[in-house]
Design a protein around this nucleic acid. Sequence first.
DNA 1: GCTTTGACACTAA
DNA 2: CTTAGTGCCAAAG
Length: 106
Amino acid sequence: MAVTSKFHQECYRFLMQIPKGKITTYKELAKAMDSRAWRAVGSAMSNNPNLMTVPCHRVIRSDGRIGSYALGEAEKERLLIQEGIPVESGRIVNFQNFLHDWDLHQ
DNA sequence: GCTTTGACACTAA
DNA sequence: CTTAGTGCCAAAG
């Protein structure tokens, strides 16, 4: 089985801080980790060990589009709508209003 | 240890 | 609006 690198663990640790109804972008998540590895963050999501505990569906693109998901974009969109995030034409409506405010004392 | 691969970001056309 | 090109960084080959 794939070794979960420290970088990936950090991704999951930060991601698990995001509550239901809030979202973030790959770029913002990397920034919270004081990194610029947006793509590496995406790779970490792809290697997501547990969809139940790691809400990777709450991570979208910086341009407001849904982005990919292990179970398909349609499923990702469905989950977001279910959590109260408005989605229209595969894009989050005013996604900036739902961005998670990272805790400074993480 | 260099090259290729990605659930991305940004700009230009 | 979409496509093409370039940049980004970690992980895998």
